[in-house]
Simulated assay, not measured.
Amino acid sequence: MASFKKGDQVEVCSKQEGFLGSYYSATVVNQLGPKAYAVEYETLVEEEDESVPLVEVAAADELRPTPPRLRLGGSGFCLDDKVDVFANDGWWVGQITEKRGSTTYFVYFASTGEEIPYNGSLLRAHLDWVDGRWVSSKRRD
């Protein structure tokens, strides 16, 4: 489990029903002990005042560093690549099922059974945070 300090850019894994497995960009605003942090989200806001970023407590096991952006060679993503899609204010894990033209990818989400088209600019290569380092899903499968 990684240790974070005030100002660190992180992603917070949601464990709420309907959002399970999605990640949201945030900044650590305070460490509340060895297993909890206060975080301020980049894209989530307070219900009462949508001009105020949401700040909440997250358990240490729900945080990971912001993943590095990988450079894609050639024509971008390939069929069956595991990707993260930026949608609904967070990153969601899916799998490429089809490519149309040079920029449209169809992504299947196992968690919902949906297949949705996205512009390639909303996708990133999926990486897993394992034992304190980033691991490509292509190397693990």
Rank of each mutant, 00 (worst) to 15 (best):
L79D: 05
S137F: 07
D84K: 13
P65Y: 03
T97W: 04
E115R: 12
Y24V: 09
G101V: 03
V39P: 03
S14K: 04
V12E: 05
P68L: 14
L20H: 12
L20I: 13
N30H: 11
Q95H: 06
G73M: 05
G120T: 14
G33Y: 01
S22K: 06
P34W: 06
E114I: 04
D49V: 11
F19G: 02
D61K: 11
W91H: 11
W91G: 01
A2G: 03
V85M: 02
V29A: 06
S22G: 07
L54W: 10
Y41T: 05
S111C: 07
R64Y: 09
P53K: 10
T97N: 03
P67I: 04
Y24D: 03
N119F: 11
T112Y: 14
D61W: 11
K99Y: 04
E47K: 15
E47V: 08
T112N: 02
G90N: 04
I96M: 06
G18M: 10
S111H: 12
V29P: 00
W92K: 04
P117Q: 05
D128R: 13
F4S: 06
V28K: 04
L44M: 13
L20C: 02
R133G: 10
F109G: 01
D128M: 05
Y105A: 00
G21M: 08
E62V: 01
S102L: 08
T66P: 00
K138V: 11
G7N: 12
V12M: 09
S111K: 13
E42S: 10
E17G: 00
A125F: 02
Y23A: 03
Q95F: 08
S102Q: 09
E56C: 08
K15P: 00
V45S: 06
E46M: 12
V10I: 15
Y23L: 14
V52G: 00
A87E: 12
A110W: 09
A125D: 05
D61V: 12
K6S: 04
A87T: 12
E62F: 05
V130N: 02
L123N: 01
G7S: 10
Q16E: 14
V135G: 01
S75G: 08
P68T: 15
E11W: 07
W134M: 05
S121C: 11
K82W: 10
G132Y: 01
E11G: 01
E40N: 05
A38Y: 00
V83T: 05
W129S: 02
P68G: 07
P53L: 09
R69L: 13
D61C: 09
S111T: 14
F86W: 12
E62G: 01
P68H: 13
F4G: 00
Y118C: 00
G73L: 14
G21Y: 01
E47Y: 14
S136M: 11
Q16S: 09
D84N: 12
D131R: 14
V55A: 04
T27Q: 08
Q16C: 03
A60P: 01
D49A: 08
F77L: 05
P34F: 04
V83R: 11
L70D: 04
L54C: 04
F109Y: 15
W91Q: 03
P53Q: 13
G101W: 06
L79K: 15
L72E: 10
S136N: 11
G113L: 04
G90H: 06
S25G: 10
L32V: 07
